[in-house]
Nucleic acid binder design. Structure first.
Length: 500
RNA sequence: GGCCCCAUCGUCUAUCGGUUAGGACAUCAGGUUUUCAUCCUGAAAAGAGGGGUCCGACUCCCCUUGGGGCUACCA
């Protein structure tokens, strides 16, 4: 590569940040990082009707959460306001209207684009006629054929509503080399005379991105495969302007597991925010989505952002769509959770605990949550967590003595007497351990040496149930270590009372 | 309907003409273990179909089938 690449992520502020968009942004970022290029963000807000007020903020929050940083373009400043940086601005399309006007009129002057005065109603009927005749719906160039440029300009001056359309050649083919799919070839006559400038004076995506990617010196456009059918239009536009088009790379789609259709908001939680709220770690989400449609051709599966940047290669992008498999994400998230140190993980878990502890408080339980206590819980629960939110599930017993059916205290076919003896034995062991020795290792050693090595369950199962009230839980050593001597003894005594 | 893209285990994927078609998730079985989880072992599991090309096709070409996308004054 003889020139430093310039690549962009171009969100539309129309809602939340979709997980598929995050993947696109990630690939763009990795590419820039790998080749030491520039990654800029441009805001494509040319559809005034669809703008959602704080959508842009969410985009930036999502990118920041994922650790994806850009060098140029639109940013969120410290006070949360939209700011811009870079020499090719403005980077917000709604601020570039005169630029698009200028270029589109140049095309009109050169006879490569024309005014169209057709009403939406005429366009609708035209379309339905064409559909009935099993033809490809396309504008019939009526206004191009009907009015000379002078006549059209007169109508415009008289205040008639108009759009400007591109005059697509009716013959020939348009070719380009797609960075992921190879040689692409399209027949021009299948292409519609698409609108460049809308009647509200805003450009369409087609015009705006072509002008901007040229002016902002983009070298590679990485975007979703939904753009592939309109790619020849864009190439033709570049040619009409006499500009060298950037390279294009069209990414395969991320698919819904059940419908196998492109993942969309109707499939439930697909926004980056949703993943964050559900307790997925950014490291896991980034790692997982990076592998959806790309892989390094080795057997490595776990990557940091830096490793991804080192290994990323557009040539290794897949053409086929990839189904989003939540189960594999869960596994990967668990892996990253287990790699976290306790302190960091505790901090991440704290908000989820908030919900659990307020519910417990309502029931009159003890919800005192010091850093130390929280860290203990987290260190015990960590290995069975798939999501951060799991920390708030089945963990009430750390705060509140459990209610449970006394029947589950029995290990295998113990008699009532055996059970009583077993619990009394635990009680005896515990009462002889001093508070200051209430450490995990010590507790474990004491209990293990007291338990019959052939039948440890006889001591450990009833104790564990007495402490947790659950058939499935962490070990009694861990639980008793967390909740402490006084509470442990209280719970064991309570459990003995449950035996008739 | 028209145009375009795509096609290996259930899922993500490796294989750039010659492999016992490899790995990971999930599943199942075993081990460790008081339970769950973690961890370790192992098993089952795939080239959509039909034509070519070639000494030889998962791999290259064509057709069929299947899936997806686009078909707006949305991006």
């Amino acid at each position: 590569m003889n020139q430093k690449p310039r690549v962009r992520f171009a969100p539309s502020p129309t809602g939340y940040m979709h997980i598929g968009n995050l993947r696109t942004a990630l690939y763009v970022y990795l590419y820039a990082k790998k080749y030491d290029g520039t990654f800029y963000i441009r805001v494509e807000d040319t559809d005034q009707k669809r703008i959602v007020s704080d959508a842009l903020k969410k985009v930036f929050e999502s990118l920041e959460w994922a650790g994806i940083k850009h060098d140029e373009g639109v940013f969120l400043d410290e006070s949360g306001n939209i700011a811009e940086k870079g020499e090719y601005g403005p980077y917000i399309q709604s601020k570039r209207l005169e630029i698009y006007q200028k270029y589109v009129h140049q095309l009109v002057k050169e006879g490569k684009a024309y005014y169209c005065f057709c009403t939406p109603e005429r366009l609708d009927t035209l379309r339905s006629v064409q559909e009935k005749a099993k033809l490809a719906p396309a504008y019939d160039k009526l206004c191009l054929k009907t009015y000379s440029r002078e006549e059209a300009e007169k109508k415009v001056e008289a205040g008639e509503k108009y759009v400007i359309r591109f005059d697509v050649p009716e013959t020939g083919e348009t070719e380009f080399e797609d960075a992921v799919r190879g040689k692409m070839k399209f027949v021009n006559k299948n292409l519609d005379d698409f609108v460049l400038l809308k009647s509200d004076g805003y450009p369409t995506y087609h015009l705006a991105h072509v002008v901007d990617d040229h002016l902002m010196k983009t070298t590679l456009v990485i975007r979703g495969e939904e753009w592939l059918p309109s790619a020849p239009k864009h190439i033709l536009l570049f040619q009409a302007f006499g500009w060298e088009p950037p390279q294009y790379g069209h990414l395969s789609a991320i698919l819904n597991k059940d419908t196998k259709k492109k993942l969309s908001k109707r499939d439930g939680d697909v926004s980056v925010e949703d993943f964050k709220n559900k307790g997925y770690l950014p490291e896991a989400v980034v790692n997982f989505i990076s592998l959806l449609g790309w892989n390094p051709k080795t057997e490595q599966e776990i990557f940091s952002l830096d490793e991804l940047a080192q290994q990323f290669d557009v040539a290794k992008l897949n053409k086929a769509g990839a189904i989003f498999d939540l189960e594999k994400l869960d596994w990967m998230n668990g892996l990253y959770i287990r790699e976290k140190n306790i302190k960091d993980l505790a901090d991440l878990c704290r908000p989820y605990f908030g919900i659990a502890s307020s519910a417990i408080r309502r029931k009159g339980g003890n919800t005192e949550l010091t850093d130390k206590y929280l860290e203990k819980i987290v260190s015990v629960e960590r290995e069975r967590m798939k999501k951060l939110s799991d920390i708030a599930e089945n963990t009430e017993f750390y705060f509140d003595a459990p209610n449970y059916d006394g029947k589950i205290l029995k290990w295998k076919n113990m008699s009532d007497d055996d059970l009583k003896n077993s619990l009394n034995k635990s009680l005896d062991i515990f009462s002889r351990i001093e508070e200051k020795n209430w450490e995990l290792e010590n507790l474990k050693n004491r209990l293990m040496e007291a338990a019959d090595s052939k039948n440890r369950g006889e001591l450990l199962w009833p104790l564990r149930v007495a402490l947790t009230g659950k058939e499935k839980s962490p070990s009694p050593f861990e639980v008793t270590w967390v909740i402490g001597k006084t509470e442990s003894i209280k719970r064991i005594k309570k459990s003995i009372q449950k035996i008739k």
